[in-house]
């Protein structure tokens, strides 16, 4: 494991190399991909990217939580959470790449 962290800049650099657009345009397009995915999720849509994975929005019911430090009860409001389910292909690649 190399313990590197990729950022938007690395993705933009990859688009620049693969497609030959300027770094600036590449960065904007990476941003555009992320915002379209985000916007669809905010609208409550499921986003399914074949061979990558599925992002879906789940509704969580209200419940009584507890502050673990003080033991005090606090209400947790109903909320929407995002879950990501990796595709089999991604799971296989990640498992194979990190073996041993």
């Amino acid at each position: 494991m190399s313990d590197k962290t990729l950022t938007r800049m690395d993705l933009a650099e990859a688009v620049h190399e693969e497609v030959g657009l300027s770094r600036n345009d590449s960065a904007q397009l990476v941003e555009s991909v992320l915002s379209h995915v985000s916007d669809a999720l905010v609208r409550g849509e499921t986003v399914k990217i074949s061979s990558f994975g599925t992002f879906s929005v789940r509704e969580k019911a209200a419940r009584i939580g507890r502050n673990p430090k003080t033991g005090e009860e606090v209400p947790i409001h109903p909320r929407r959470v995002l879950t990501f389910r990796p595709s089999h292909l991604m799971k296989d690649k990640v498992a194979a790449g990190n073996k041993g």
Binding site: K4, T7, E18, L29, A96
Partner: peptide
């Protein structure tokens, strides 16, 4: 190719054991 590159690179990074941090997204 742009869309595929974005998702492929994320998968490749994880296959390498790397993290991918996209502020604001996840």
């Amino acid at each position: 190719r742009i869309v595929n590159t974005v998702f492929d690179r994320i998968t490749m990074a994880m296959a390498n054991g790397d993290r991918v941090e996209l502020r604001g997204f996840g």
